[in-house]
């Protein structure tokens, strides 16, 4: 696990549900075929209403054109990120699109578990609401050793909540690696 992760911010509102992250009609593609997998990246966040896509201005689509990767690799969300359907295709789609970290106010349980146990991305919780302080396109730097987020564009630094009991699973890269390292399987 790298200690410093840098990337551009993509800012979203509250209650981003998994239907917005990856609409149900796209859940038909293979998750193991490398070519089909790209479809998940391509359709990531495609059901977010356009005026709420890339805050504060909106109208900034996460994926441009035929791409399956986004120029943004750190998502800043609000409360209850990933609510709704249990589809693990949601953190998978974000991972394929290049998302490394999400910093949200809070998460829905299943999305949070899926992100951690599947080793797709790191779901941090902020100590404060950040989706009204950071703008889409801001250059960010997350330091995993000190649990801090630096907004290079604005010069401000924010403290993140420690990952707590899931840290070991995140560090291992998912539940299977964790279980193997601990001789559980």
């Amino acid at each position: 696990m790298e200690n410093i992760i840098k990337g551009k911010a993509y800012v979203l509102g509250d209650n981003i549900d998994t239907d917005q992250i990856i609409p149900a009609e796209h859940l038909v593609y293979s998750t193991s075929d490398p070519e089909e997998l790209k479809k998940y990246g391509h359709f990531a966040l495609s059901s977010v209403p356009i005026e709420k896509a890339g805050l504060p201005e909106g109208r900034k689509t996460f994926i441009v054109g035929d791409n399956h990767q986004s120029e943004y690799s750190i998502i800043i969300g609000g409360s209850n990120f990933g609510c709704g359907s249990s589809r693990e295709h949601a953190p998978l789609a974000l991972q394929v699109a290049g998302t490394k970290i999400i910093v949200a106010e809070s998460y829905a349980r299943i999305f949070y578990r899926n992100s951690v146990d599947g080793g797709f991305l790191i779901p941090f919780e902020g100590n404060e609401k950040l989706n009204d302080k950071i703008k889409t396109g801001d250059e960010l730097e997350v330091d995993l050793a000190s649990n801090s987020l630096k907004n290079i564009s604005s010069g401000k630094t924010y403290q993140l909540r420690p990952l707590g009991s899931v840290y070991d699973i995140v560090k291992s890269g998912g539940i299977f690696n964790y279980a193997r390292e601990n001789n559980m399987i």
Partner: peptide, 20 residues
């Protein structure tokens, strides 16, 4: 309760799962 595919795959092989 609902879980994702990785947790389900873990159960499928071991019959076990962690929960809070």
């Amino acid at each position: 309760t609902g879980v994702g595919n990785t947790d389900a795959a873990f159960i499928l092989g071991t019959g076990k799962i962690w929960e809070k």
